[in-house]
């Protein structure tokens, strides 16, 4: 019994992926199906924050702006320029990564709240530009008629699942690699990292770039899923929600990030019976989770995965 448990623990990503892969087979009502898709799409941006915040210790409250950049890049290319959706799907994250690299530059000098305020400001700048650049973005009326990468919804689901799985594996490998260690060293002690040969600026830039690439990818999937974009989907509150999902998932655990994204995305829907008050309850739950995160951490899922992650470290490190 214990052995089975251990096997599940060590292959948790595969287990999650396989369980999710069953969803289109068993047939879920289309709205719930959409929510799960959105949860997976959110998982990508949350993993991007795991890399940035969980590994590197850089807190961003501007990720909604990056999500918007990816989403609008995809949408505008497809709608206004008739670009092949697959090509747009490739360009969107790359362009977002370039924008996000700019976000990394203030991190050379600024830490703590100083950096967070900068990321909020950059996120807001993106939103205001989208709101006012009507010719390109549709402004407050939004951008409609965005074609999906794949029209078949089941295939689309599997595409997202494969992307999430690949990103999860890649991120786990990144975590235990030289780069991941440099990120964690920056988080814990920048001076020690620098003195041991880590080019702190370069690695911060790398963390922001990787994170933004993933945020842009998440945005392109978002645009593809909804078919409609509106600046209201990319506010400070959205950035905050992504951050809260990251904390709930244990900050540096990839499986934790996936599960918390799915759970938090579904939460407003689960609370739907409460109608108007559901968003209040939802944010109250988040407040309480943060307040008791320390107590929760002795039992919570994320700890389970963090332990597992440490084991992974050892496996790559060679073990005993």
């Amino acid at each position: 019994m214990g052995k089975i448990f251990d096997t599940i623990k060590n292959n948790i990503l595969i287990v999650i992926a396989l369980l999710l892969a069953l969803i289109p087979v068993i047939g879920v009502p289309s709205y719930q199906f959409y929510i799960i898709e959105r949860g997976l799409q959110n998982a990508i941006i949350v993993i991007s924050l795991v890399i940035l915040l969980g590994y590197t210790g850089q807190l961003s409250l501007g990720h909604a702006g990056l999500l918007a950049t990816g989403a609008y890049t995809y949408g505008i290319l497809v709608v206004s320029y008739n670009v092949n959706p697959w090509i747009a799907f490739l360009i969107a994250p790359i362009f977002t990564a370039l924008i996000g690299a700019l976000l990394g530059i203030p991190s050379f000098k600024l830490t703590g709240p100083f950096l967070v305020v900068t990321t909020i400001a950059l996120g807001e700048i993106v939103r205001i530009l989208i709101l006012n650049w009507e010719k390109l973005t549709g402004g407050p009326y939004g951008l409609t008629g965005i074609t999906s990468i794949i029209s078949n919804s089941k295939l689309m689901f599997y595409l997202i699942l494969i992307i999430v799985y690949f990103i999860s594996v890649a991120t786990s490998r990144l975590s235990v690699s030289k780069i991941g260690l440099a990120f964690k060293a920056i988080k814990e002690d920048e001076v020690a990292a620098e003195v041991m040969g880590v080019d702190v600026k370069r690695y911060k830039l790398l963390a922001f770039t990787i994170s933004s690439f993933l945020a842009g990818l998440s945005g392109a999937i978002f645009a593809s899923l909804t078919g409609y974009l509106n600046p209201d989907s990319f506010t400070f509150a959205d950035s905050a929600t992504f951050l809260l999902m990251t904390v709930l998932g244990g900050m540096s655990s990839v499986p934790g990030a996936i599960l918390s994204s799915l759970a938090v995305t579904a939460l407003p829907e689960i609370l739907r019976f409460m109608a108007r008050s559901r968003m209040v309850i939802y944010s109250l739950v988040l407040l309480l989770i943060i307040r008791y995160s320390k107590q929760l951490s002795s039992v919570k899922i994320s700890k389970f995965f963090l332990k597992k992650k440490n084991k992974e470290d050892l496996v790559v490190g060679g073990g005993e």
């Binding site: 030289k178 440099a182 814990e188 002690d189 001076v191 041991m196 880590v198 490190g317």
Partner: peptide
Amino acid sequence: IRVLGSQTVYDNVRLGLHI
């Protein structure tokens, strides 16, 4: 001392191998 407190001993030494 400026070691990485929350990392393993192994990983702390591994940081020295960064370059």
